[in-house]
Design a protein around this nucleic acid. Sequence first.
DNA 1: TGGTTGAGTGAGCATATGCCCGCCAGATGG
DNA 2: CCATCTGGCGGGCATATGCTCACTCAACCA
Lengths: 322, 322
Amino acid sequence: MNRKPAFDAEDSATDAAARAGWLYYVGRLTQDQIAAELGVSRQRAQRLVSKAMSEGLIHVRLEHRIARCLALEAALKQRHGLRMVRVAPSPGPGADPTHGLAPVAAEVMERFLRQPDPLIIALGTGRALRATVEELPKMTCEQHKLVSLVGNIAPDGTASNYDVIMRMADTVRAPHYPMPLPVIIDDEEIRRMFYSLPQLKIVARLADQADVTFVGVGHMSESAPIYVDGFISDRDLREQRALGAVGEIVTSCFDAEGRYIEEGLARRVGGLRAGGKPCGEVIGIAAGPDKVVPLRAALKGGLLNGLVTGEDTAEALLESPE
Amino acid sequence: MNRKPAFDAEDSATDAAARAGWLYYVGRLTQDQIAAELGVSRQRAQRLVSKAMSEGLIHVRLEHRIARCLALEAALKQRHGLRMVRVAPSPGPGADPTHGLAPVAAEVMERFLRQPDPLIIALGTGRALRATVEELPKMTCEQHKLVSLVGNIAPDGTASNYDVIMRMADTVRAPHYPMPLPVIIDDEEIRRMFYSLPQLKIVARLADQADVTFVGVGHMSESAPIYVDGFISDRDLREQRALGAVGEIVTSCFDAEGRYIEEGLARRVGGLRAGGKPCGEVIGIAAGPDKVVPLRAALKGGLLNGLVTGEDTAEALLESPE
DNA sequence: TGGTTGAGTGAGCATATGCCCGCCAGATGG
DNA sequence: CCATCTGGCGGGCATATGCTCACTCAACCA
């Protein structure tokens, strides 16, 4: 009764791997120390540790409320081929689901702003974006250019309340290019005239080359901000919904497949679409139950390649089949 | 409403640490990759990972039946200041509690045998040791010396069945020094004569310099092997128990505090005590419910500095207070 | 207001890690 | 019985890691 046959050699190899893995991950020993402890060469110790990992003997888990968020980020990133996803922890039941989103989004934005090389940063509009910009710290970013994708003149002639570019430029001290035209331009002639203005062409060209674009994602229900705030009419809303619109990004509506709807309203929008530059980042910032449907569509259609959202929203997005 | 005050800076630092730790341990990214991902310097990434660890955000657990054994080993090692502890997985309820002990002990023994530098290896006796030796593979260890600590002549004049040294020497091809004298020598004159034999002096000197000693640990109940196998008489057993004996190592009895009992039987033992050389390893091999009391005493008295035992026994040893 | 302090930062370096390569032993097949 | 093969082993090297040391910047106190 000497050496056992192969059937338990496997077992004893796994035992040794477990032992090595334990010493490495739990005991925090170096592989040299493990080698000494087990009386084997360092290479063998390294192979055992690696085996312990690859055989799944070692389980690592993160004890932190954002652990779930990180998992959601990874899942969303993978499912939709996104470049960047950030999921803000849920604020808890009952609270505003967008609470906590802005600081996280601001962190993302700040990272771009901290780049020393000049960037062209395009901005949409909306509550989420506005809140994000308000979370930015004062800084000096004269190397970048901020470009608005959307007209800053509301239907009533005032500057739009949700025009974020001025505020942002103010906080981060960057050259900025608002789009001096109405959000919606009913007369096609006038619209063409606006677009032919030289300064608008400059803005359009810049926006087209944006390295990164931050946009909100709106929904198209009766309480759609774009409608409630008077940017589009009741008729427009019904028309777009009839055409299949489930959401909008800088007033461009898209259907459940994430395809922009070219008919109707699209012809009267005073602004540009996000994502002109193919290799630029287009980051959507949105959270809340209302945003699940439009976000799902936008992701499906590849309208975004980056996303900042909330835990519950991320979960809902991942619950859909496919 | 710009930068938040310190109260959530702490939180966001922990969040970042959690994120970094997650990327490192779950995502298996290098710190450089994490630095790029988070847009910080590598040093910062390393600090975040380290913070995640030190704040206990990362929990590692080993998914393997020996995980518990490893934890028990660490606990025993620490509690009793032992140099080496191995705990064999429990064979399951109902099975022989010593099952599985021998292969583990043999692994330990083999490690010493594989040493290229010459070692003096002292051996006790007993079932556990015998079983251990039988698990050794054939090998050639001419550099080492095997020394017996205990007489190899049973009271009936035969060579003891549990004399392990011959078998071991046979398997590992090492020079060996049995102790050619009875296990118990009733006549003091004869005992002195035996000890004055030159070859016995050689053995005694070797044993005294043993680099490592392997011994079984016996209990002192009515079913004590030392008694059942006829090495000591009923009277001896009662005498030693009356003197407080709770266990024996190579026929030297000790009390609950792990102090050797010098009266009575001790004067008639034909053999040596384990642990002559202060810096040598003295490794006890024993498992089973009967062994808990003697092992606890031996550990308390520092009679052993190494231990190979079973999962259940280790657990029982750790259950005692103090 | 101006010094002081202390936490956080990046550079640099010694060490640990992971991986590739040539080697050897034991298994396999002629 | 010998040639071949395969799989594990240690040597060595490029890379990653962790740590120390000045340094900065900003808050705090006098």
